[in-house]
Every structure is written in structure tokens, then in C-alpha cells.
Write a protein that binds this DNA or RNA. Structure first.
Lengths: 228, 228
DNA sequence: CGCTATTTTGACCACGTTCAACCGCTGTGG
DNA sequence: CCACAGCGGTTGAACGTGGTCAAAATAGCG
């Protein structure tokens, strides 16, 4: 599929590219289909290019030297993946694992770097995005340091609801299959604690579950529980 | 002082600017002296420009809604402050407080944005720096989530040693006056816990103190204690 | 020299992790 | 067709880290 059509989707970083740049992008990019469990790259790998998600879900996580996994984020349609390593010119600081069959475009490093050096508005949009992500990461650090597990869990549910939620009459359905273990890796906690919190949140009618999908049914309650 | 001379110091982001841009910078910038306790900006303030530290130390911290302060970093000579808000076009997500008498240059937002839009190499250097900072923030998140207070404290001492340390025969002197409370705000802990850790680390001959300056005297031991 | 802020120490307690056992479901092989 | 293994989820109990509270010691400072 030519970029000219494809780029209308997504977060718009590449929206303002002129035609000739777009065709150059077309020529050097490649698309690939990934299945659940595959990885785009591993922590420590060199960065060879930028990944752009056309469809699917990708989990970005960091592993510490004791093997604990900390989920940074879950990216979806229209998100870019791997740009941090490209830009800082370091190995990937984290791993990108496909958690739902995905179609992903790959843009080689040289093409990407040339693109941003020649097209300032696109470069600026990317800078903006990283700056926003930096603020968010620092905010999460503050949360992690000072909030207890219950508050962090409520917070994560709200964040997932915003990015991956489908609003229905019933509530906001988080459209991700997440095991208790995975949820625990989000908030830096244990599987067992997450289980007890889910039970509690259901009892307090903040959430329900339907076929492994968590549904947020009381946003104000969750916001209050998150301590915001 | 003209930028042409001044910029030779610092981290080199503005190194490669051509003469005419540099003189424009000269014309619109202003320098100011700040005393301990003053702030450059408060969390929630709009961003009016970029701050460039010529001398001194500035503490960047985020305050949560319960009043807990989480220190993001301590910036010193040659560091830029406040660029995240400028670039993401949001209010400052944190507060910049002077902790040691400082001389700071101020570059208005419009000048800065024009500068990076016209001079791609400088823009790219800034993007690189933010990307690196993003990686670091995400790494700290992982640390905060999975390491205990002792490990985090050792880690913070090492990080401070790298950025603000003076290597002597005696060891690495951290050239900052930091109260126990401030150290606690770094690692997301309590004053009392830090006190007990300092006592312990001294007993184990990892550190000593001289006039409120912490001196790292056993780097390998600290690295081991940090769990790396 | 008194007043305040910071540091220190001790005691207590709660949150949340860890360990262990158990349930329910699914897939696999005898 | 049933037995059994394997996996995710659930529950209970025990323990430990580290936060909180209170009070004393020390250091700064006008």
C-alpha cells in the first residue's frame, strides 16, 4: 500500500510530507505481518529503523537484571515504535513484543534520518511527541514513587481506557487481552495483588469483566481511587 | 557576555550555530542572577522560554496532589532547563528551584523555536538529548518499580557522582548540599529511611561525609549494592 | 544564648510480597 | 474416552520492608 493513502491514518506525524518525499518513503519502506509473541526488536539490539504500526498491538517493556519486566506502554494503530533508539543513537533500551497480530511498516534508519533532516515540520512533530512522552514518563515516576498499588492500578486502567478503550453504553471496554501478570508488570506489582484488586474493584462496581476484557463502568470512582 | 564566547562552555548544543544566528541569540537573550530558594518556574506555569545555566545548581521536581515532591534531576552548568514544556507546547510539568546561587540565561520561546526551525543540526542535537532523557526516565521507572530503597539509594549516589562528582584521591565528592529529606525525594522514600541507609553505608565503608558533602569511597561496592 | 530546623533513634504497624495449595479450563496422549 | 499435565487464576497465611509517629539530640542562626 502506498504511503500516500496509508498515512492518512495514524497520529499525523507524516501528514505534511510533500509528494516527492512520500514517494521516496514508499520506495524504501517495507511492510511485514507479525504474529502474537514475535518481537520487533530486543533490548540491547542496535536500531536499524523505525516501525510504524498499521494494525495490531505491540507491548514495549524493559527487563531489569533480575528478570523483572516493566511495561513502558502498549502501542497500537498509527503509533511509531523504536524512534527513541534511532534518535539517541543508542541500542534499543527496551523490547517490542507483538501481543496481537500486527501489520507493521519498517522505515530504514537512513531514510528516516534523511527525512527529518530535510523536513523540519515533521522533525518538529516528532520532537514534540518525544517531549510529551518524556513528561509522561517523569509523571509516572512520581506516581510509582509515591502512590500505593491500588492507586497505581486505578491509574493504569484509566490510561489504558484512554488509549485502547471503546466507549459503550455499558462503559469503556479496554480492547486488550491482558493477563493478571501483565497488568502487574504495568504497575510494578505482583500477580496476586492485581487479582485481589480486580476482585475489590468489581465488588465496588468500578469495573467488570467480559471475556477477559476489562470494562470501566465508573470513571469518577476510578479517578477518585487513583488519588487524582 | 556575548554567546559567541559563552557557548563554548556547556554541552555543545549551540556549538555549531553560524555567526549571524548567534548574534540574533545575543540580541534577544537576557541573563539573570538567582539566589538559593528562588524558582525559574513553577509546575503548571506556561513556558515563556528556555533557561540555560551558566553557573549554579537547579533542582527540577514534580509535586503530586498530596504534596510529595519527586526530584527529576539536578541540573548544573551548561544544562538547558524547561525545553520539555517549550517543545511539547504544554505548561511546565515540574518546578525548577535554585539550590545554589546561579547565573542563568533566558532565551525567549519565539527565538528558540525560530532557531530550531532554521537550524536543523541544533534541532537534532536537542531531539537527541530528549530521546536520551526519555530512555533514562523509563529506566528509572523500572528501577523505582522493582528495586528496594537500599538499591535505589546506591543507584542515586552513583548517578549524582557521575554528574556532580569531583574525583579525588579520597573518593568521588558529590558537590551538592543535600538534606536527608532531599535525598529521600530523589528515591521516593522517607527521611528516616535515608538516615538509616547513610548510617549503614558509612558502617560498610561505601561512603563518608565531610561538611554535608557525601563522598563515594567504594564504587564497586556501591554498584553491587545498587543491584547492577 | 534561646529558638528553630534538621538529624537521629526507637517502636510500631500496615501494605504488599512471597510461598503454598487449590481450582478450573484446555489440550494431549494412552 | 478418560487421565493427566500445564497454565492462568484464586485464596490463605506468614513474613519483611519500609513508612509513620513520637521524642530526643544536634546543629544552625539571629
Amino acid at each position: 500500500m502506498p504511503c500516500a493513502q496509508c498515512n492518512k491514518r495514524g497520529d499525523g506525524v507524516f501528514c505534511t510530507l510533500p509528494e516527492n518525499t512520500l514517494s521516496h518513503l514508499d520506495a524504501s519502506k517495507s511492510a511485514h505481518q507479525y504474529e502474537t509473541g514475535q518481537t520487533l526488536f530486543h533490548q540491547g539490539n542496535d536500531a536499524y529503523g523505525l516501525y510504524y504500526i498499521q494494525a495490531g498491538k505491540i507491548k514495549i517493556y524493559e527487563t531489569d537484571n533480575e528478570g523483572n519486566q516493566q511495561i513502558i506502554k502498549i502501542s497500537g494503530e498509527g503509533d511509531m515504535v523504536g524512534y527513541d533508539a534511532l534518535l539517541s543513537n543508542t541500542p534499543h533500551p527496551n523490547t517490542a513484543e507483538v501481543i496481537e497480530a500486527s501489520k507493521v511498516c519498517f522505515i530504514p534508519k537512513s531514510t528516516f534520518l534523511q527525512l527529518i533532516s530535510e523536513h523540519a515540520p515533521t522533525h518538529f512533530k516528532i520532537t514534540q511527541q518525544i517531549a510529551r512522552e518524556l513528561s509522561e514518563a517523569q509523571h509516572r515516576l512520581t506516581q510509582m514513587a509515591h502512590k500505593n498499588v491500588r492507586e497505581r492500578f486505578a491509574e493504569v486502567l484509566l490510561r489504558l481506557g484512554e488509549k485502547h478503550g471503546l466507549k459503550t453504553a455499558q462503559g469503556t471496554i479496554i480492547q486488550l487481552h491482558l493477563s493478571r501478570q501483565t497488568l502487574a508488570e504495568f504497575i510494578g506489582s505482583s500477580q496476586e495483588s492485581v487479582i485481589r484488586l480486580v476482585t475489590e474493584f468489581k465488588r465496588d462496581e468500578l469495573i467488570t469483566e467480559d471475556e477477559h476484557f476489562i470494562i470501566l463502568i465508573n470513571m469518577p470512582g476510578l479517578i477518585k481511587t487513583s488519588g487524582a
